[in-house]
Design a protein around this nucleic acid. Structure first.
Length: 643
RNA sequence: GCCGGUGUAGCUCAGACUGGCUAGAGCGAAUCCUUCGUAAGGAUUAGGUCGAGGAUUCAAAUUCCUCCACCGGCUCCA
């Protein structure tokens, strides 16, 4: 047998007998730790305390104080749910029930559930928790395991795949309930202090849409009820921040039934979009991009040589139709048009990079079930741009764009995660080309010191991509900005430039979007700011509240002065009490309100209140306007005049 | 697209399970009164072919079918 070397988190090494369990090692470190051991993390994988160590490894002991404890607890909570389910519905079949970042889910079949059923199951689960059953590991030989699941093809599938090498097979048992499972689990059901079932939805077996659709029940669990309550409260607040709700309340946009997936920007929403457009237009100019405009409607043949036609049309993702015996389509991307603009004249190596930018409106027939407010739509406008560069300019251009993206997001106080997406199955072009393109992106990320993760096989068909991903109020991840290198389109369209050597050379195409699309970006920042847009973006930047109608004349004079500075100003002229006017203005999240009564009018001053509920009376308007202009120009995220 | 859920006034929601007076409320809107000093003043009025179409019935917001849109996932993507 011999020994194995276990490396502990503090770097120390421990030699233990081969086959020792996680728990054994913990006991060796100290009897207290041995007693408290819930599970272990072996080379990054969470495993049961009784897992034997068969080779050299890194080991971390998980106790109730570890971050991983929550995952273990939730894994057990999934079993409690499953037991409760089977008590009420013996015919229900279990499939898989893992923990997730904020809870657990269990995929089941053979039973129809609705929200009301969840409550009943939750009550049953509470009883199982109150009974505090011991949770025990049970080893069963393979044959017996198959017998247990004679009528459950999903569990048999697991036995034949994930557990193919196991004999005996690991089960966990509590009370009369058992489940095929690797663990780890807490010691007894009573450790779960707070348990809730949250959502009922659906998922495909093994995530493949060709497979059977299962019922997925989402839940969560915490060591204490108080932590559960806190989590549920956060969840409620997140729902309040949903951009679809805010979009309605703040009258920013709508997506009417007659144009699913296509956004109507209301005056308030358009004010924000215009600011974004102007800002990005300036950024693009600074980066050397020349603005162009190309049409939405083109003949379908435009996208055949580039490969878009195959990639989009065949998937039903492109809107295209026959007209006068010719096939037309709405553009799903702007790059084909830009490539043709490049190709209209002979380009010299001196001309490169040639850079085009366009606020290009594209249409893609996204699946109906995918549409979601501003975040996933069918019609969208990208702040798109394409740079055609010499190979020696490639890295530099990527770095410049990445830097711009970083600077821009800093202005919004936005946190994003960078992801490098690499070659997938649908890719066109050779492996060498992909490797070069991917290396260029990777080295740019690294030289900028940006941390990133890799999504293998997720790139677009024409080239690898850096995605800047933001998280929405419900915890979902959305790509906003993106930089992609593309050797394929230049090749396929035979784009060239004349080099110093008077020979034709192949440029590289960089696709990039800074915000991504105005729609999605607006959705992201609406939630990020909870509708409290920075001054420069706020649809209504200042609202003037006269104390009584007698002060309306003065209110309009103050308004005119602010409008002369380009501010968006409203006057509240309804015959409401001042308290009501203030409340309504807060609800609309207007950054500044000016309260004007007889005192102010006779003194020629203003009373300033901001949406952070601070106020100052007797302010000279001339001391208010310059700092306000500055706050707008510097794109500060919070009103700071009253700091 | 798939599974499940939802759709009643501009907004938020009652009413539906168990079919039956003229489908209600609050906010918002309009009009009038009030002209108010830092987070909801009062009264009156208007506003709905109950998502659309079909079926069952003496009678449908309510039951059934088809479709549309939305919501949560899944799958797919900026």
């Amino acid at each position: 047998m011999g020994d194995v070397v276990v490396t502990l988190p503090d770097g120390s090494e421990l030699e233990v007998e081969r086959g020792s369990t996680v728990e054994d090692v913990a006991h060796e470190i100290g009897p207290g730790l041995g007693r408290d051991t819930v599970a272990g993390v072996v080379d990054g994988d969470l495993v049961d305390a009784v897992t034997p160590l068969t080779e050299d490894c890194r080991l971390e002991i998980v106790t109730e104080d570890s971050d991983e404890y929550l995952s273990v607890l939730r894994h057990s909570a999934a079993h409690v749910f499953a037991q409760a389910l089977q008590r009420r519905y013996p015919e229900a079949k279990l499939t898989i029930g893992p923990w997730t970042d904020d809870g657990f889910y269990y995929d089941i079949t053979g039973v129809d559930l609705d929200e009301a059923d969840l409550e009943a199951i939750e009550a049953e689960a509470e009883e199982i928790i109150a009974a505090d059953y011991d949770i025990e590991r049970e080893l069963v030989d393979r044959e017996a395991a198959f017998e247990r699941y004679a009528d459950n093809p999903f569990k048999r599938d697991i036995l034949e795949t994930e557990a193919a090498d196991e004999d005996p097979v690991s089960f966990y048992r509590q009370d009369g309930f058992y489940d095929l499972c690797q663990g780890p689990h807490v010691e007894s059901t009573g450790e779960i202090g707070g348990f809730a079932l949250l959502e009922i939805s659906a998922a495909y077996w093994r995530g493949d849409e060709d497979n059977e659709s299962l019922t997925r029940v989402y839940g969560t669990a915490f060591p204490t009820g108080a932590e559960l309550e806190e989590y549920l409260e956060q969840r409620r607040q997140a729902k309040e921040r949903d951009h679809r709700r805010l979009g309605r309340e703040l009258d920013l946009f709508s997506v009417p039934d007659y144009s699913p997936g296509c956004v109507h920007f209301h005056p308030n929403g358009m004010a924000i979009r215009r600011e974004l457009e102007e800002y990005i237009r300036t950024q693009n100019e600074q980066l050397g991009y020349e603005e162009v405009w190309t049409p939405e409607l083109n003949k379908a043949e435009l996208w055949k040589p580039t490969g878009h036609y195959d990639a989009f049309k065949q998937e039903g993702e492109m809107f295209a139709w026959e007209q006068d015996e010719t096939e037309y389509g709405l553009k799903p991307m702007n790059c084909a048009n830009h490539a043709h603009l490049y190709d209209r004249e002979t380009r010299s190596y001196r001309d490169l990079p040639v850079r085009f930018s366009e606020f290009g409106t594209c249409y893609r027939n996204e699946q109906s079930g995918e549409l979601s407010g501003l975040l996933r739509v069918r019609g969208f406008t990208q702040d798109d741009g394409h740079a055609l560069v010499r190979p020696d300019q490639l890295r530099d251009e990527i770095v410049r764009v990445l830097r711009a993206i970083e600077d821009i997001y800093a202005n919004f106080d936005l946190d994003v995660e960078y992801v490098l997406e690499t070659k997938g199955d649908n890719a066109v072009g050779s492996d060498e080309i992909w490797e070069t393109a991917t290396d260029a992106l990777r080295s740019a990320l690294e030289s900028e010191g940006l941390s990133y993760s890799i999504d293998a096989g997720e790139a677009a068909f024409y080239g690898p991509k850096i995605g800047a991903n933001a998280i929405d109020a419900l915890g979902r991840e959305w790509t906003i900005g993106t930089v992609q290198t593309d050797f394929n389109i230049p090749e396929r369209l035979d784009l060239t430039y004349v080099g110093e050597d008077n020979e034709e050379h192949r440029p590289v195409m960089i696709h990039r979007a800074l915000l991504g699309t105005f729609e999605r970006f607006m959705g992201v920042i609406t939630e990020h700011f909870n509708g409290k847009f920075p001054l420069w973006l706020a649809p209504e930047q200042v609202r003037i509240l006269p104390i009584s109608d007698d002060n309306l004349g003065y209110a309009h004079r103050v308004k005119n002065d602010l409008e002369a500075d380009g501010f968006r100003v409203g006057v509240e002229d309804r015959s409401w009490t001042i308290g009501k006017k203030i409340q309504a203005t807060h609800e609309d999240r207007v950054p500044y309100m000016l309260i004007l009564g007889d005192d102010e009018e006779s003194a020629g001053t203003i009373s300033v209140r901001d949406r952070k509920e601070r106020e100052r009376n007797g302010v000279d308007p001339e001391t208010f306007r310059p700092p306000l202009r500055e706050e707008r120009a510097e794109k500060r995220t919070e009103p700071d005049f009253l700091d």
